[in-house]
Amino acid sequence: MATPIGNAADITLRALDTLRAAGAVACEDTRVTGKLMGIHGIDTPLVSYHEHNAARMRPVLIGRMKAGEAIALVTDAGTPLVSDPGYKLVRECVAEGVEVTTLPGASAPLAALVLSGLPTDRFLFAGFLPNRQTARRAAIGELKGVPATLVFFESPQRLPESLADMAELLGPREGAVARELTKLYEEVRRGPLPGLAAHYAEAGPPRGEVVVVIGPPGAEDTPGEADVDALLREALSRLSVRDAAADVAARTGQPKREVYARALELARDAGPGGASGGGEGGRR
């Protein structure tokens, strides 16, 4: 039996009982979990299970559980299986008919959502955005039209530039930046995205783990045909059809195929003397 257990800093009595009763505790870092075990006087053996050894350790852990042993899975922080390799262990447990239960602890995405003051009836947790700006902007553009509150993880070092991209592509939506949730130095900063971007551009990267929450789109966030055409004409004046379509799709959240088809129409209408970068041959 596998039992994922939540954040050690907010551990429950039930979780402590489970750790004591388990045959072994699988954890990301035995040093981190070892401190927790020592504080509570628990001497259950620790087994290392992390991103780099997960493929090798899963068959070992599955074998022990199929033999009747209970294994507890602990993460260094947050909720197991959220942005960590634990989900693959649970998936294999399910495939092998091994019973799985969970003892949730602190969840940074949910805590940030609750503290943000933004709508909670519908939300999308999108994990980490891509590191590179071009890919990151494309990902933000794809999510622009999602009718839900958006929740992201972000590294402190990339936060200022990510917020700048969000402010440019999503406009003045309300947002919140939460860091070190459920810990001693918990902090939540709320406001329109441009204001948040300006603050962190001046203050620099914060310390600790960061979650960004962005409110859902309003009617003003959905561009009309005239808006898309205007953006495309401007983009076609300096880019090829393909690059102009990609740029506008990222900025508006419109489907890439539809934007590309409209860009082709506008480039044909402009003719040879039209937009200088309108055709594929416009690339330099």
Rank of each mutant, 00 (worst) to 15 (best):
A8F: 03
D10A: 15
T12V: 07
L13F: 12
L16T: 04
T18L: 11
L19S: 00
A22I: 03
G23F: 07
A24F: 01
A26V: 04
A26K: 00
C27Q: 04
D29K: 11
R31G: 03
V32Y: 09
T33N: 04
L36F: 00
L36I: 10
T44E: 08
V47F: 05
Y49G: 02
Y49C: 03
H52E: 08
N53D: 05
A54F: 08
A55L: 12
M57E: 07
R58I: 08
G63V: 11
A70R: 14
I71D: 01
I71W: 00
L73P: 00
D76Y: 06
G78S: 01
P80M: 05
K88W: 08
R91K: 15
R91L: 14
A95K: 14
G97E: 12
E99N: 13
V100H: 06
L103V: 11
P109A: 04
L110C: 15
A111H: 10
V114Y: 07
G117H: 06
L118G: 07
R122Y: 07
R122I: 08
L124T: 14
F125D: 00
A126V: 07
N131S: 15
N131E: 15
R132V: 15
Q133F: 09
T134V: 15
T134R: 15
T134Y: 11
L143G: 06
G145Y: 06
V146K: 14
V146H: 13
V146S: 14
A148I: 07
A148P: 10
E154L: 00
S155D: 04
Q157L: 15
L159F: 05
P160T: 05
S162C: 14
M166C: 08
G171E: 01
P172F: 01
R173D: 00
A176C: 08
L181T: 03
L184T: 15
Y185F: 14
R190Q: 02
G191L: 03
P192F: 02
P194F: 06
G195E: 05
G195P: 06
L196C: 04
H199Y: 15
H199V: 05
E202R: 15
A203R: 09
G204T: 05
P206W: 09
P206M: 05
E209W: 07
V211H: 03
I214G: 04
I214N: 02
G215V: 04
G215I: 02
A219W: 09
A219F: 10
D221C: 05
P223A: 09
G224A: 05
A226G: 06
V228F: 01
V228E: 04
D229F: 09
A230N: 12
L231G: 15
R233V: 13
R233C: 12
S237D: 11
S237F: 00
L239S: 02
S240F: 02
D243T: 11
A246I: 07
A246L: 06
A246Y: 01
V248A: 10
V248Y: 00
A249Y: 04
A250T: 07
R251D: 04
R251A: 10
T252V: 01
P255Q: 09
K256N: 12
A261R: 12
L264M: 11
A267Q: 06
R268E: 14
R268I: 13
G273A: 13
G273Y: 11
G274H: 03
A275V: 14
S276G: 15
G277Q: 01
G281S: 14
